[in-house]
């Protein structure tokens, strides 16, 4: 039994590591290509022969060979530790993402809550990076990042509460099953739930969740922490070589992870109608990955659609609009749940 557990754990770790790395590389490639086409460029073209598909790999290989410059002024220990903390937080999110009824590394009872808690660990890593660099840009960037991440953590958490109220469970598998079994006024046929019920009932929550995840990922329009035109690269300014790559990888792995959480919570996750649980273990990952790809495309699209927000506008958006709206969403959902 115990031996069995360790073997399964090894397989799970290998699979999830593969999903994470491939997901991150594909998102990086998607970012390069989609950005290029949205700006009437061609983008990467040569690496790998066709469409330049090997560009992210080539970048990675090149980064490995690059000298790592650690300036004299940095606090070396903290500086070196920061990427570990960031990637540890991102990796730990993947534990609870359900790819199928049994295709989940660990179906924690605390599911959603665990995701929200563990994803804030990366904030500590970012603040460590900004502070330890001994550079003015890094310090400003690190502080901005910390302020932004905590401000948008709240709408993110509060937007999820609506889903938890409807599903009545915190486990991510439980939430997917609740969406599969959702009944409109008690009579809905199963196939209708292909249109995700929570996308309609929690449309406000979904919008808030997406906005807040963009901010949590520090992507444009919320990329004040690494605003190139004023802070060079923010908290990443002094990083070079492979440590920089690790931050970069963590960012895209985080994007895939948050997209997966959003698809699970609001878009029905791995579920398809008329498919037995056994078959869902094979088809589920494909369904989920399609949804993730859609959301990642949306994230990239938004980058080329919205201009960057100023720092105080950014805080105003979180505290004045998103948090009150999220609270209102909770109240309305709770009232409807109790009344009906």
């Amino acid at each position: 039994m115990i031996v069995n557990f360790w073997v399964t754990l090894g397989i799970k770790m290998a699979l999830v590591l593969g999903v994470m790395l491939v997901g991150a590389l594909v998102s990086i490639f998607g970012e390069l290509k989609i950005s290029a086409h949205m700006q009437s460029r061609i983008g990467p073209y040569f690496a790998g022969g066709r469409w330049g598909w090997a560009q992210p790999l080539a970048d990675g290989l090149k980064f490995i060979q690059k000298e790592e410059i650690i300036p004299d002024t940095v606090d070396v220990r903290v500086f070196k530790l920061a990427p570990y903390v960031v990637l540890m937080g991102t990796m730990a999110i993947y534990v609870v993402i359900p790819f199928g009824p049994d295709m989940v590394a660990g179906n924690l009872d605390l599911g959603v809550f665990y995701v929200l808690a563990i994803s804030s660990i990366s904030t500590v890593g970012v603040l460590m990076a900004g502070w330890s660099s001994g550079n003015k840009y890094s310090l400003m960037g690190g502080l901005r990042a910390a302020a932004q991440l905590i401000a948008y953590e709240l709408p993110l958490v509060l937007a999820v509460v609506g889903v938890v109220i409807l599903a009545g469970t915190l486990s991510l598998n439980g939430i997917v099953e609740a969406q599969a079994q959702w009944q409109w006024f008690g009579v809905t046929p199963e196939w209708l739930n292909v249109i995700p019920p929570y996308l309609i009932l929690q449309a406000v929550g979904f919008a808030i969740f997406l906005t807040a995840s963009l901010a949590e990922l520090s992507r444009t329009p919320f990329d004040m922490p690494i605003a190139e035109s004023e802070l060079v690269m923010g908290y990443l300014t002094e990083y070079s070589g492979l440590r920089f790559t690790m931050f970069f990888l963590g960012e895209y792995a985080g994007m895939v992870a948050l997209a997966a959480i959003a698809s699970t919570l609001f878009l029905g996750g791995y579920w398809l109608p008329f498919v037995s649980d056994d078959l869902l273990n094979f088809i589920g990952p494909v369904v989920l990955i399609t949804k993730i790809a859609l959301l990642v495309f949306l994230f990239i699209w938004m980058r080329w659609t919205f201009p960057r927000l100023r720092e105080d506008q950014l805080q105003q958006l979180a505290w004045r609009i998103l948090i009150p709206v999220a609270l209102a969403n909770i109240v309305v959902t709770a009232v409807l749940k109790v009344v009906f």
């Binding site: 770790m13 570990y84 990637l87 534990v95 590394a105 924690l108 070589g241 690790m246």
Partner: peptide, 25 residues
């Protein structure tokens, strides 16, 4: 234990990358 293993996997990934790069760079 799974959670701890995954957190460790994150640490290991960075460690392995940095170690590999240390040989080459």
């Amino acid at each position: 234990t799974t959670v701890a293993a995954f957190a460790f996997l994150g640490l290991f990934l960075v460690g392995a990358g940095v170690g590999l790069s240390k040989v080459v760079r």
